[in-house]
Design a protein around this nucleic acid. Structure first.
Lengths: 349, 349
DNA sequence: CCGAGATATGAAAAGGTTTACATCGGAGCC
DNA sequence: GGCTCCGATGTAAACCTTTTCATATCTCGG
């Protein structure tokens, strides 16, 4: 059957501004004005038009609007993934601010692949987004070139870009790591394990690791007594990594994880190995996911202002040209949240 | 200072199809064809144009494309929230299928408010989305009217709509609840607690509850020995709810939670009360979130095919008119995942 | 009562693409 | 060799807004 030739049932199209104008007895310009800058239209005309709009169920065509005004009210969000719950809080923060302003969020994932990020950015530019939220300040040159050439507003989160010209609303991953190291040193731990995220092309993961290591050194902990393992942010990987560390150095009394996701897995891994947390081994995470408080034991972790970053990013994209620079750089703080998964180092065996 | 009068630096505009055509020495129609149906253009011309596209860094204007073709390649996703991690897996499934097809996901949250859902739908229609993914089959009349009048393709997830004309890719929440009840009955539990989600205007929460209750009755469990509490899907609420149940009936030997999020909180609540899970009390959740496996004890739960629903929804929206009905209804299964949080009922005290 | 200025509305162009239709060559057939 | 038909390309209209500029009406001071 020739499906192409099927009768078009679309006879009754969605009403346009023309239809509204006709019924209201005015020009389309006036209708447009009522919708965009109501105060410029006489009160009675305004009300008449609004009534017609309502009657007809008229909804403006966003594509046409975007084409003409070159503003789509779409903000792109590019994150590695949402699977691990790390970025959802930022997303919620962003959306909560965007929605009241009539803007929407276009979500894209890269799977921690910077080349894929290029394609994703191109796709978002094609969709005409007014701005793009990026995670971290490590990107391909091509990504930035694309962004600049097309004059798309963008910002970096979860990190503070060294390049001051790049807007960022984030925090210093290094000092977050340092916070954890410092606390473990306070507790007297000397033999440490670290389960870092994959540091390659990931400034957050590497920043946390470096910050931790630097502070550990400052506190007199011997680098040779620190075991470092890298693994992707997955529960199962954290579990496996804990076992590797335990095998490598049975004297480890504390493990720092580059993410709570890894910490959850590692917690389980330690328990699998018959170790009690925190009596036998201390565990400290990073992110302060909601779940951290509800684990047993509650997870000591470094809090990341995820939601706040989302909100601040939204502020930046919603800002008009004049107040842009005010919002273009927001330095936020990490802080240590002490719960039950950490304790003073046990005596050496 | 008159900021409005600032010099426009936008002299160098992004190149358009006209520019490409000029450089390639052809008409704009041919350029468009190369981009959309390359096989209709001679190979040498095609390559020449592609080269120019690359040189210029030309990116098509999505708004213009959407306006003319009335296809935006945008799919809207409306969920209650992403905070609780319940819906992120579906989102990832959806996005993973959409992205390769050049489509993007527009995310909106309702906060479990059906009136807000109406506004969100209107907003998405205005953005010109090609389709909308909804959660559950409980919606305001106005929402559906909007969707129908504007001929926006839409589908329901996390439930199977009774109205067969509404496409849905979901599962039967009642049988999911029944699964849990049946298993607890098998284990000999007679005094039960239920922490359901808020059932008002939520067919998933109420379905799970009803399904559980119905099966419990069938298995001879006395309704009067079942304590039911409703609470929003938050860890803290689950914890509080567990305490309420324990206070109300100290003989409860098992608790069914309408969501893993509640179960996590309840687990903690029981431990707070000095109860061991599963020796003193069994706990069973719903959703099979990734975290469930990593709790201590591992959480017995009802698995929901979240990712699959997202993928199937994507298939539906990506399908062309011909194969639409094939994809328009996908019944998926829930299944019980037994872990360590459940055990045979302890003897009555 | 006239003219200036403010206010409200209309006419028309512009924004960048897709696509129906027209055109132009060339291949295949009798 | 002329005719048909097909494939490749071009022309121009259409998609629906926003926005600039012009016009018309009204207010108010002199």
């Amino acid at each position: 059957m020739a499906l192409d030739k099927m009768p078009r049932v679309d006879k009754k199209q969605s009403p346009t501004v023309v239809e509204v104008a006709k019924r209201a007895g005015c020009s389309i310009a006036t209708v447009s004005r009522v919708l965009n800058r109501p105060e410029t239209v006489a009160i009675d005309m305004r009300e008449r038009i609004l009534r017609v709009v309502d009657e007809l169920g008229y909804v403006p065509n966003g594509s046409a609007r975007a084409l003409r005004s070159s503003r789509s009210r779409l903000i792109g969000l590019i994150v590695p993934t949402l699977d691990s719950a790390i970025f959802t809080r930022m997303l919620e923060g962003l959306e909560s601010r965007l929605a009241p302003a009539g803007a929407s969020l276009v979500y894209s994932a890269t799977g921690y692949d910077l080349d894929r990020e290029i394609r994703v950015v191109r796709n978002l530019i094609e969709k005409g987004v007014d701005g793009i939220v990026l995670v971290g300040s490590c990107h391909r040159k091509e990504t930035l070139k694309l962004l600049r050439e097309h004059k798309v507003r963008f910002a970096v989160t979860y990190a503070l870009s060294e390049d001051a010209s790049i807007p960022s609303m984030g925090f210093d991953n290094r000092s977050g790591g340092a916070l954890a190291a410092s606390y473990l040193a306070d507790l007297g731990h000397k033999n440490l394990g670290i389960i870092a995220g994959v540091t390659r092309e990931n400034d957050r993961a590497s920043g946390r690791l470096e910050g931790f290591l630097a502070m550990a050194e400052r506190r007199g902990i011997d680098r040779s007594s620190i075991v470092v393992v890298e693994s992707p942010y997955e529960f199962s990987r954290g579990r496996a990594a804990a076992k590797i560390i335990l095998n490598q150095n049975r004297n480890v009394t504390a493990i720092f994880c580059g993410s709570d996701v890894l910490a959850v897995g590692a917690l389980r891994g330690c328990q699998d190995a018959g170790l009690r947390v925190p009596q036998d081994i201390s565990m400290i995470g990073f992110d302060n996911l909601d779940i951290a408080e509800y684990l047993t034991p509650g997870l000591t972790t470094v809090d990341v202002p995820a939601r706040l970053m989302g909100e601040q990013a939204a502020n930046y994209f919603l800002a008009d040209r004049n107040s842009l620079d005010i919002h273009s750089r927001v330095d936020l703080e990490t802080r240590l949240i002490v719960r039950e998964s950490t304790a003073p180092a046990r005596d050496r065996q």
